[in-house]
Design a protein around this nucleic acid. Structure first.
Length: 853
RNA sequence: GCGGGCGUGGUGGAACCGGUAGACACGCCGGACUUAGGAUCCGGUGGCGCAAGCCGUGGGGGUUCGAAUCCCUUCGCCCGCACCA
């Protein structure tokens, strides 16, 4: 049997595609465009299996759409700024740029080995000044439009590394690298005004109908709109009023205290004369924000001695606490506590001896006997103990209370949002410099556009902790662009999510002098199909959505939504193996003779654990390069597609990969060395076809229909199954009757065309082996004849009372009467009816017959 | 706690609108060829039963001529968010 030489063949076709520029595209107003994008990778060193899945899925779609006649943009680039490069610099003394570009080289070669249909002429790396200069300009535009600003804010501070950490870099309240407890610090930071579009972002999520429901929900919750009221409490003996946000103003008559956040300005003012309070605030700032700590943290408070006056109860004074469970970042940073109807307030009230007065009576409860125990009542009910609200339902009471607050000038209706502005300052070297200058006289001065890009200096020192830009001897010393005085360059860099918020637009016009031309953006955007991991469900996707609106305001483009379709792929999983030495890599074990696994080196028994996401810690990882070296890219791609639908997790199995490998080899040998030679390419369909040839012809049309539908519905695994089904039919065929040779050729040719988006190299090679010149990737997707894609005869199941009792074969679209008669004539049906007339016979044309006895 | 999702053979999964449950694979069993097989080819494979047949989509109930699919309820698992007032 002719062995398929994947090494030579795959390399050959990649070279040919590249030489012929098969996947380079340009705007073409005459053709419908389709923009397929996979989330670009961070160049961490090597491609991992998740990338392989991501790009295989994207490539299938890109090649399919190209074959369907679309002008397909399918680019690839590198999300190249980020912390790992700085860690490498610190640990191995390599410059971040050198490390990053070396990784890009490696990974690009790995990607090339997969045969992906990228327009490599559009490749970009975000760490290149030619890329980030444009976002420096965007930032200046944002500044001008009021979409960027600087303010003091509380941040995570690592006291050992002397730097701000992102929330993601704080693990259980400690710096991820130093292990030091993270503190909260008030620092001046740059922000992008994401909140300017919060309403629009929230409302537009509903329109993202080609996004997964759960991603839309996550964004919805992240933006987090709550309708409520702001209430202004007079404070005894002070001028200012305490402003509180609540969504439960219906429970105001149940209030027994007020509480403010440790970072509330009022707390800071009071702490100046109260050392105990100052110590309490410091303690709050030290305590972690990690989930586990919040879960276990006690509700603590410090009584300020102030009294807030209840707006509607004469003489009722509410003690004001500084409390550790009140967040400065949400609402007004102050609350009123109604212990009966809020669990946190109840916990706090119980430990501080405060009153618990129920004001909402659950349906059916008795006002005289209803009491609050350890659980607050948060459900619906009738308001009581509440003066003018008595007898109202909760929603009604909220409205009435809001009216009274507004009338009394003691408050107003208000909507609170969970979404905060995006803090983009990072005290890092390997990021895009923020293009502003701090002048002692003029304040913050934007860098003049003519001076862009502000490039990173190369000669930096990573020996000490902290930001190398800040330590650089000369870089930050500049003259003020306005007054010429000695000034200081901003040494913070952007959060790396800045780069990924617009790279898809840069791909439209990656070599231009501007970020991208309006024409190219108008032609290509939005991305028609974006594919990537669920881990970006909020941050990256939300930032990008904000960016489109901000760029629209600055005149860069005219769209709101960057990604019309989003597909979040599942993870790649693998069995885990361990013995008494710990976790084992898959290549450290082998199948034992009697089933199970043993160690490859000494035959010692191995415990097989559950199938889990591939991770370094569990060692259940497969290196894609090994797979591609052993089986070739087509095999890896085919297996990636065949075992699970794209959005679901995929279990990587050696036997599955081997199955894919055997299939391709089997198919190759049938095409390269057919048992019966096929008629030459271009042989017309004979007028006469044997029944077998007709059946095969129909099977081909059916397959084309089914594969197309499966691809459109993200059922790539089913598409592969239909292809294999046709392969089985072709292998079983092979008679000498009229037209059977033609039908076999028709079958194999169509099969190869359907395989092209899945396994492009071997498909091209088979196309050649079938006697065709030229590129298969230029051949359009096959059409099918609807008449031939439907069976001529159909087999109908015959049920009696919904239970299957037999089947009948009838011509398609047979009359209901004839079908009914045939069904009633079946032996099992007659047996059950025993001469009685059926009560009813349901005939669903071409589907089923159900006899109701 | 709130929100989203998922439960189908030994395994991954298929079944678009309610219409013959288990496509296609993996695995396993049997056979052929072979010096050999972890190659290839052929056959079998949801469970119980000798069979006729019965039972089967996490459990219970409902709607329907007919339910994996719709509704109610319950159990289990996964994911996201969360002192959000």
């Amino acid at each position: 049997m002719a062995r398929y030489d994947f090494r030579a063949t795959e390399a050959k076709w990649r070279a040919r595609w590249e030489e012929a520029g098969k996947f380079a595209v340009a705007e073409d107003p005459g053709r419908p465009k389709y923009y397929v994008l996979e989330m670009f990778p961070y160049p961490s060193g090597r491609i991992h299996i998740g990338h392989v899945r991501n790009y295989t899925l994207g490539d299938l779609l890109a090649r399919y759409k190209k074959a369907k006649g679309f002008n397909v943009l399918h680019p690839m680039g590198w999300d190249a700024f980020g912390l790992p490069a700085e860690n490498a610099a610190f640990e191995r003394r390599v410059h971040p740029a050198e490390w990053t570009y070396a990784n890009i080289e490696t990974m690009r070669e790995q990607l090339r080995g997969m045969g992906l249909s990228y327009d490599w002429s559009r490749e970009l790396a975000t760490c290149a000044p030619d890329y980030y200069r444009h976002e420096q300009k965007m930032f200046l535009d944002f500044l001008r439009e009021g979409l960027a600003y600087r303010k003091e804010s509380w941040v995570n501070w690592d006291p050992v590394e002397n730097t701000v950490l992102a929330n993601e870099q704080v693990i259980d309240g400690r710096g991820w690298r130093s292990g030091a407890p993270v503190e909260k610090r008030l620092l001046s930071q740059w922000f992008l005004r994401t909140t300017a579009y919060r309403e629009e972002l929230l409302e537009a999520t509903a329109g993202l109908d080609r996004w997964p429901e759960r991603v839309r929900t996550m964004q919805h919750n992240w933006i987090g709109r709550s309708e409520g009221a702001r209430i202004l409490f007079e404070i005894g003996g002070r001028e200012e009023r305490l402003e509180v946000f609540t969504t439960r103003h219906d429970t105001l008559f149940g209030a027994s205290f007020c509480a403010i956040a440790a970072n509330h300005p009022l707390a800071a003012a009071l702490a100046e004369d109260d050392p105990a309070l100052a110590e309490f605030i410091a303690e709050c700032n030290r305590s972690g924000t990690g989930e586990a700590e919040i879960e276990t943290a006690e509700k603590k408070g410090h009584d300020t001695g102030l009294k807030a006056l209840h707006p509607f109860v004469e003489g009722l004074e509410l003690p004001v606490y500084v409390a550790n469970f009140v967040l400065m970042e949400y609402g007004t940073g102050a609350i009123f506590g109604c212990p009966a109807h809020d669990q946190r307030d109840l916990d706090f009230a119980r430990s501080h001896g405060l009153a618990v007065l129920p004001v909402v009576l659950p349906p059916g409860a008795d006002a005289a006997s209803f009491e609050i125990g350890d659980e607050a009542y948060v459900g619906p009910g009738t308001v009581y103990n509440s003066d003018f609200l008595d007898g109202m339902a909760v929603e009604e009471a909220k409205a009435a209370m809001a009216d009274r607050l507004e009338a009394a000038l003691a408050g107003r209706r208000e909507t609170a949002w969970r979404l905060r502005d995006w803090g983009v300052s990072r005290q890092r070297y390997w990021g895009c410099p923020i293009p502003v200058i701090h002048c002692p006289d003029c304040g913050v001065v934007p860098v003049p556009e003519a001076d862009l890009p502000i490039a990173l200096p190369d000669d930096v020192d990573f020996e000490a902790a902290g930001n190398p830009l800040d330590r650089h001897p000369t870089w930050k010393h500049v003259a003020c662009p306005d007054c010429g005085a000695a000034a200081r360059r901003e040494t913070d860099t952007f959060d790396t999510f800045f780069e990924s918020s617009w790279y898809f637009a840069r791909f439209c016009d990656p070599r231009g002098e501007t970020a991208f031309s309006r024409e190219s953006a108008d032609y290509w955007l939005p991305v028609d199909q974006y594919i990537g991991g669920i881990e970006h469900a909020v941050l990256h996707l939300l930032y990008s959505r904000f960016f489109m609106r901000a760029l629209r305001k600055c005149g860069y483009l005219g769209i709101d939504e960057p990604f019309a379709g989003l597909m979040t792929q599942g993870m790649v999983c693998h069995e885990t193996y361990r013995d008494d030495t710990g976790w084992l890599f898959p290549d450290q074990v082998r199948r034992a003779d009697g089933g199970g696994y043993v160690r490859a080196d000494n035959g010692a028994p191995v415990e097989v654990g559950r199938v889990e996401k591939m991770s370094k810690s569990k060692r259940n990882v497969i290196d894609p390069e090994n797979i591609i070296r052993t089986y070739g890219a087509d095999t890896a791609r085919l297996f990636m597609l065949s075992d699970s639908p794209p959005e679901r997790d995929l279990e990587w199995t050696e036997s599955g990969v081997e199955g894919a490998w055997r299939y391709l080899n089997r198919l190759w040998s049938r095409i390269a060395e057919p048992e019966r030679p096929l008629p030459p390419a271009g042989t017309p369909r004979p007028a006469e076809l044997s029944p077998a040839a007709q059946a095969l012809e129909r099977a081909v049309h059916k397959t084309v229909k089914a594969v197309g539908e499966s691809v459109e519905r993200w059922r790539y695994n089913s598409a592969v199954a239909r292809v294999r089904e046709l392969s089985n039919a072709l292998a079983a065929a092979g008679g000498d009757g009229p037209g059977e040779g033609w039908a076999a050729r028709f079958g194999y040719e169509t099969l190869v065309r359907l395989l092209e988006p899945m396994t492009p190299h071997i498909a091209e090679e088979m196309w050649g082996a079938l006697g065709h010149e030229g590129f298969l990737c230029d051949v359009p997707w096959p059409d099918y004849d609807p008449a031939l894609a439907a069976d001529e005869t159909v087999t109908l199941g015959v049920q009696v009372n919904g239970k299957r009792r037999g089947e009948i074969e009838v011509a398609r679209d047979s009359s209901e009467d004839s079908v009914r008669d045939m069904a009633l004539d079946l032996d099992p049906v007659r047996k059950i009816l025993a001469g009685r007339e059926p009560r009813r016979v349901v005939v669903v044309p071409n589907r089923i017959v159900n006899v109701v006895a």
